[in-house]
């Protein structure tokens, strides 16, 4: 199972003064079960790219193959693709509309033509995945907190049983606790359900901690496509693309300048802690 983009171009408002080339010659293959991070400065084309992946936008030129099938071919069902590629928009809680949480999550499955009963069981399962218990089913979605609303919205997409899950800034505007909870749950889903996950983010710390592969977008094209560690070695180029490296990489670089070289490729707090503890033990003897 894979998503494959070939020489994809997209131009907004073609032929008017408002014309803008939002995607330039994108070549990209995403394999089954990958946990991919997508980062880039505002306006770099991230959101436009994600909307192509479930065919909400159609490329101006180029090809897109889903499992080898041509998405822009005549017999391809875009509705079916939208089920397989679940897209959670930015601030998804703004799209809630039903009278209670359970009915709202049922909206997706019902659109697939499932029976009332089956839709409800899928909705319950999805709500459980995002950590929302039975006591929430009857509540109005508008009475929930921001983090809870967002989980309900994510459950609304999960209930459609997507093969690929794309999340556009799922943690924007959440407090650190809500952020960690949501990301942990997504990471768990990715491992347990073997789901392909694409995480669009502004936070270098988030992508450094969770993803296996990192795609950096800059000026409508792909700047880097590698493991997070390899990407964050390009500190200069990242800064030119108006992006920073994670705080821990920055800290390790500063320590190195002071003569304490703990090794390259430390990008998360956990890794930094391990490296510092290791050095501490070496210095103070293994007895401590």
């Amino acid at each position: 199972m894979s998503l494959e983009l070939k020489n994809l171009n997209y131009i907004y408002n073609e032929g008017t003064p408002m014309e803008s080339h939002a995607l330039k010659d994108i070549n990209l293959t995403i394999r089954d079960g990958e946990f991919v991070g997508l980062i880039g400065h505002t306006g770099s084309g991230k959101s436009t790219l994600t909307q192509h992946l479930n065919a909400l936008l159609e490329a101006t030129s180029g090809e897109y193959y889903y499992n080898g099938e041509n998405v822009y071919g005549e017999n391809f069902s875009k509705k079916e693709l939208r089920r397989k590629v679940g897209l959670v928009f930015q601030y998804p809680e703004h799209q809630l509309f039903e009278v209670d949480v359970l009915t709202d999550v049922c909206f997706g499955p019902k659109n697939l033509g499932l029976s009332e009963e089956e839709a409800r069981s899928r909705a319950k399962e999805a709500l459980k995945m995002v950590g929302m218990g039975e006591n929430y089913y009857e509540k109005s979605p508008f009475d929930l907190s921001g983090g809870e609303k967002r989980r309900v919205a994510i459950a609304g997409v999960l209930a459609m049983h997507p093969e690929v899950l794309i999340l556009d800034e799922p943690t924007a505007g959440l407090d650190p606790k809500g952020r960690d909870e949501i990301l942990d749950e997504i990471a768990k889903l990715q491992k347990e359900q073997h789901m392909t996950v694409i995480l669009v983010s502004h936070s270098m710390e988030d992508v450094a901690t969770y993803v296996d592969r990192l795609i950096v977008m800059y000026q409508s094209g792909i700047l880097f496509d590698d493991t997070p560690k390899a990407v964050f070695r390009h500190r200069k180029e990242m800064e030119e693309a108006h992006l920073a490296v994670p705080q821990m990489s920055e800290l390790m670089r500063m320590l190195k300048e002071k003569g304490i070289d703990l090794g390259e490729d430390i990008i998360t707090v956990a890794e930094a802690k391990d490296a510092i503890m290791k050095r501490w033990k070496e210095k103070n003897g293994s007895g401590r």
Binding site: Q51, N54, L56, K79, R82, R83, G86, L87, V88, F89, P92, Q95, F97, F107, G108, N111, L112, G156, V157, M160
Partner: peptide, 24 residues
């Protein structure tokens, strides 16, 4: 777009169905 991503259909059906589809 968000509701289309959840499988909503705004283009087919009779007038009543289409009106109902606008609710989300």
């Amino acid at each position: 777009k968000a509701q289309m991503a959840r499988g909503a259909d705004f283009e087919s059906g009779n007038v009543l169905q289409r009106a109902k589809a606008l609710l989300p």
